[in-house]
Design a protein around this nucleic acid. Structure first.
Lengths: 252, 252
DNA sequence: CGCTCTGTTGATTAAATTCAAGAGTAGTGG
DNA sequence: CCACTACTCTTGAATTTAATCAACAGAGCG
């Protein structure tokens, strides 16, 4: 399958525009990049660990996990990518020895060549800055994962992850409750939180006691503040928007 | 104390030049940025958690930890910054709600204003790309920290961290041994690896058995391959240099 | 209908934390 | 120079947490 311009990077451009000031020229530049659509089944490697990748991909639907092989066949997920994420954007400037990318459910993506993204960044300073900002945002999340896995007990760990995911998916209803489609297995949750499948199962029982269930490919959080407290969750690290005058500088 | 141009960002420019092709104009641009030198004592906050920062800082000597407060007064270090690192560079495009920065020993830094760095990036595409690449490299390290803290047992965790640090400091002698000045306490190691101080102490005993000691502000690794095996360490994630033609593209 | 994957539960074991106390070390001021 | 203090390091014992082992139930799919 070849790359073509028929694809639609609109959601990506909109996302960038939410935190960075892009002019029409910049938006057009990005929208005109050739893309290639791919549909991938559950539990398939989109990228294998150590491979050199030549494209980033916008998740259109589904979930992708950035995985790393640890000793004795253990795996650790270091990032979860949800629809709207431009995965491996950071690899455009650092394509070697990537971590693996695996689908956690049937997933569709739009692949964009790294060379095209770098060219766009080179031609438009505010695109470069927007990409840099995306990278910075991804790093914030990863820093929280280190805290999560390093310092929190099982129930807090799982609660924090569920809060983060609910928030990123925009599934929180006025701070009162949340519910979203989430087709990950308990094994996936284990690989994400650095626990065993068995312990995830028991911990889910604990969370059920505070009104949060993960069943039938769906997360249901009946009492959002309770889960936030259980997970020691503070959404500020997910905020992408800086003071307006800050992002205005470069565009002016 | 005011910002002045007397400082020296030479080491930073050299570092960028090692992975990105910068022309003389770009180098001059960076070297002419006003800087402010600061010396800070041990265990002081250079930045408090949640603060908005307005400058990045080049570590000239000493060590800085990026800390995050977890529940019950526990702290987790999410990144260790060594001499040569430009800390909070990523925050130039995302200055809000930063994690804290703390000195782990007497440390000197050169502060550079974020606004100046952003302007440099806006004026010179290859500076923008170099900054973006730095951000991407920092993220690679953080991803490994997630794996480390999430999946490895105590001794492997500590071994991996020591390997990483030795490697980053350039302290590994032909793959045979390593030794470097390292004034962190066992509490610091605990905050880094997500363990307790007591357990760090016991685990250091284990590593002593394979020829690695952390004593008197110095790490001594007598058998590098042994520690690498113990820590499941693969230095490739630290590599910054891509294929030459890759980095050449944008400069051409 | 039978296979495989996922979820569930109990019993056991291992790993790391917690609690507690004491020894070593460096810095401070008399 | 020494005593005092605060911090760091060390060790043991008890406890907690999570992993491991094992078996089975349920769901989904061909």
């Amino acid at each position: 399958m070849m790359f073509s311009s028929t694809g639609n990077l609109r959601t990506f451009v909109d996302r960038l525009a939410r935190h960075s000031l892009l002019g029409e020229a910049e938006k057009d530049c990005l929208l005109s990049l050739p893309v290639r659509q791919r549909q991938i089944d559950t539990n398939r490697d989109l990228v294998r660990q150590g491979e050199n990748v030549e494209y980033a991909c916008l998740v259109t639907s589904g979930f992708l996990a950035r995985c790393d092989q640890a000793p004795e066949g253990k795996r650790q997920v270091v990032a979860l990518h949800i629809p709207g994420d431009m995965v491996d954007l950071h690899a455009a400037v650092r394509p070697m020895f990537t971590t693996g990318l695996q689908t956690l459910c049937p997933t569709t993506v739009l692949q964009v060549r790294h060379s095209d993204l770098r060219a766009a960044a080179a031609d438009h300073p505010c695109i470069a800055e927007a990409f840099w900002r995306e990278c910075s945002a991804e790093m914030s999340i990863m820093a929280q994962w280190v805290v999560n896995v390093g310092r929190r007990c099982a129930s807090a760990r799982l609660a924090h992850f569920l809060c983060e995911t609910a928030w990123r998916l925009g599934a929180v209803n006025e701070g009162a409750s949340a519910s979203f489609h989430f087709p990950l297995t308990q094994s996936h949750l284990a690989e994400i939180t650095g626990m065993t499948t068995v312990h995830i199962n028991r911990t889910l029982g604990v969370l059920r006691g505070v009104g949060t269930t993960v069943r039938k490919k769906r997360v249901t959080i009946t009492h959002w503040p309770t889960l936030v407290a259980a997970g020691d969750f503070d959404a500020r690290y997910l905020e992408l928007v800086s003071r307006p005058d800050e992002s205005a500088r470069i565009a002016a």
